[in-house]
């Protein structure tokens, strides 16, 4: 039932716009594509990207990858304890940082929620405060804390906590705003005070959401913890940068594998917990 070619040509001639986008749209698309391509090309040139360099690098990459197999397995109990401690430290950093952040963020979030804090200037101030904290890069905060507390996991915990305050307070405040008014009105109608209305009418609605958000952020903080370790805030990242710095690639690869496994397990566990007890909430920062 296909059309003969001359009929197709006929329609193409008479209905040009059915076969191609209008010129202005095509121009716009072309310019956009060209602009992106030019950006990529210019950047590659400016970065000193050359096939030769990649080619030379590939040889070295092969050598480095060669250490991956057979994987290095620590046999000295002291080394094993060291690595296990590093992994535990990273986990503890993420856990403590998230929890500390959540504890501080929780009361603050009420100040930033539209249906609790009706005093607009204060609410706006608090909200902008959250934005400012979120814009502070965790890594920079960590550097400041490392200067104050010395190298180690404590700086990492506090840096994660500070970053988390901004993120969690914002998400918590949004969760509080997304609650139904009716249960609170019911409590007030039955003679409850405003704190009682919040405690009995509002809190049961937000608990699961808060838990879910906190778990999700814990998950992403396990990654952050690894990164902070590399700049000197303890944990497995610290051990990794140490091994790479000493060119002990066999051990470095094993640590990288352990990090991947750790992240994977935590993601999986937390997804399971969230789905089982709380229901689905997929957050994006």
């Amino acid at each position: 039932m296909s059309l003969p070619q001359d009929e197709i040509d006929h329609y193409k001639r008479n209905l040009p716009r059915a076969f191609a986008a209008p010129l202005s749209l095509r121009l716009r698309r072309g310019t956009l594509a060209l602009g992106f391509a030019a950006l990529v090309a210019w950047c590659l040139y400016a970065f000193g990207f050359s096939p030769e360099r990649i080619w030379n690098g590939l040889g070295r990459l092969g050598r480095v990858l060669g250490f991956m197999f057979p994987p290095h397995i620590w046999t000295d109990p002291e080394d094993i304890a060291d690595i296990a401690k590093g992994l535990g430290e990273t986990l503890a950093m993420a856990f403590l940082g998230t929890l500390l952040g959540a504890l501080v963020a929780f009361p603050l979030s009420f100040l930033g929620a539209k249906n609790i804090n009706r005093f607009t200037p204060l609410r706006f101030g608090v909200r902008r405060g959250f934005d400012v904290i979120r814009a502070l890069e965790t890594l920079i905060v960590a550097l400041v804390f490392i200067r104050a507390f010395g190298l180690g996991p404590l700086a990492g915990v506090l840096a994660i906590a500070v970053g988390e305050v901004g993120v969690l307070a914002k998400l918590f405040a949004e969760a509080i705003e997304n609650t139904a008014e009716k249960p609170q009105e019911g409590v007030v109608a039955a003679g409850g005070s405003r704190p009682q209305a919040i405690r009995i009418g509002l809190m049961p609605q937000i608990w699961p959401v808060l838990l879910s958000i906190t778990l999700y952020n814990f998950e992403s903080n396990v990654r952050t913890g690894t990164i902070l370790g590399i700049v000197g805030a303890g944990g497995i990242g610290f051990l990794l940068s140490d091994r790479i710095g000493a060119y002990r690639w066999g051990e470095a690869w094993s640590i990288i594998f352990l990090i991947i496994i750790l992240v994977y397990v935590i993601d999986w566990l937390s997804a399971r917990i969230r789905a089982r007890f709380i229901g689905k909430w997929e957050g994006v920062r």
Binding site: A92, L96, G152, P153, L154, V157, G234
Partner: peptide, 15 residues
Amino acid sequence: LMASGFHLADARNAG
């Protein structure tokens, strides 16, 4: 858990 973790972090830290 939090208190012990914090204590541990404190102890493992340089300062």
